[in-house]
Design a binder for these strands. Structure first.
Lengths: 241, 241
DNA sequence: TATTATTGTCTCAAATTGAGACAATAATTA
DNA sequence: TAATTATTGTCTCAATTTGAGACAATAATA
């Protein structure tokens, strides 16, 4: 649980949603050579969290997450991977949810549905940083990018969720094509390498990286790109097809 | 959802459990050079399913799965990995659950909690085939091993769940140590290779496999094992530590 | 004692990766 | 106009890993 894209009426009774189950999403973006993720901050609380929500009774789990992210980022076809379900009892801290609800003008009774225990199914998304303008909503002060190495303390187990997302992203790096979703459609080899370095958290050897990427046969080479800098201009690439 | 380790009283109201959420487990064992999994069959229905259950309101998700498997296999410290949560709406087929309940003497009303929609969090387990004697229970005709290449049709999306479990197990094969859980504590190199071949579904090169395994420095070599066969006797190995 | 079916190790080739050399080249500077 | 600078693209050579097979060692059997 976390930020809920839920109408005021739905907050009251929660009738349209599955109970005890929520989702959270770790949205990765790449900018200024750094990997970043989207965090929300609740009104008048100083509490930070991952964007998340609930699942409607007649809605596929995947669709709930897609829809939630579309509302928040404006992007329609987001690259999503489910990576883990978090279900420890110690993630049930009704005080926190109560604080958030009260700070937003609700007066939740002891049995308010949002104060119940939730198991959260976590997804990560990869998006092109420049494609979106994050949108806060009624309950949220802000929805902004944070450098992955400079995260604030988050509510519940959300820092752990991010850890696990990164770990999964790293192991997926050589089995799924990752750059295509984090970069604009055209990019230089250097930019692609920076994406890999930001995800792995370590420097890679330039020549080996270039040789490896070219050997995979997934890149299409385009005209040169004149940066205006006083040195040889790099080629521009896009992903094949 | 699937087989539920649930007392008759609990079946009636389901009060002690989280709603809309269940788990299923894919229990892998290795015997006769083949990879097998545990399936249950419901009384008087001819319906096959994965063993599963529900999560108590004050119980960690992981603990619920461990406990359920302990009841069914008798093993205390089972190797478990969570691999995916299945949440499509088309896995909600109350007719099937109704059939199972009726065949077991229950008369579920339209709003019986087990007829509701469930999102299932799936785990796979690796166990030593010879350590256990699968136990059927009140609702179950049988709980037995099936060769992974000869599975019957299962209820709901359980065949898909097994597919995904196998896929995950394959990608984990070179990042986690798998043989240790599927074999007895002492084994030959040939047996270890057969485990890998059964999981990958393909033959491996004997000499390369042996060289690779020895180079990992995870095996301890013991005395020779005289099989009684008319050829050189193999060494016996165990996992280090 | 020869035969048989494996097992353990070694060798050589092929493929992949690490590490660096070096020429090519846009813009800036002299 | 020519030298300078900071990259970029490619090549080479060594080290490592993997593929493929040769071959000697060896328990039981004939």
């Amino acid at each position: 649980m976390a930020k809920k894209k839920v109408s005021p009426a739905a907050v009251a009774d929660g009738k349209g949603f599955l109970t005890n189950i929520a989702y959270d999403s770790v949205v990765f973006g790449f900018s200024g050579e750094k990997l970043k993720i989207l965090l929300i901050e609740y009104h008048n609380t100083g509490l930070f969290a991952l964007p998340g929500g609930f699942i409607r009774r007649n809605e596929n789990l995947d669709d709930a997450v897609k829809l939630g992210l579309k509302e928040r980022t404006g992007i329609d076809h987001i690259y999503l991977e489910q990576f883990y379900a978090f279900g420890n009892t110690n993630r049930h801290q009704p005080e926190i949810m109560e604080t958030i609800l009260k700070a937003n003008g609700y007066k939740p009774g002891k049995k308010h549905w949002m104060l119940d225990r939730f198991i959260s199914i976590a997804y990560y998304a990869l998006i092109n940083y420049n494609d979106i303008t994050p949108r806060p909503d009624a309950v949220t002060d802000s929805c902004t990018w944070y450098d992955i190495t400079k995260l604030p303390a988050l509510i519940l187990d959300h820092n752990t969720i991010i850890e696990k997302a990164l770990e999964t992203l790293r192991t997926n790096l050589d089995r799924k094509i990752v750059g295509i979703n984090l970069l604009p459609s055209k990019f230089t080899m250097k930019e692609l390498q920076q994406v890999y370095e930001a995800i792995l958290g370590e420097k890679l050897r330039r020549t080996s990286f270039q040789r490896k990427m070219l050997s995979l046969d997934i890149l299409k080479r385009h005209e040169k790109h004149y940066t205006g800098k006083a040195h040889k201009a790099p080629y521009i690439y896009s992903f094949h097809h």
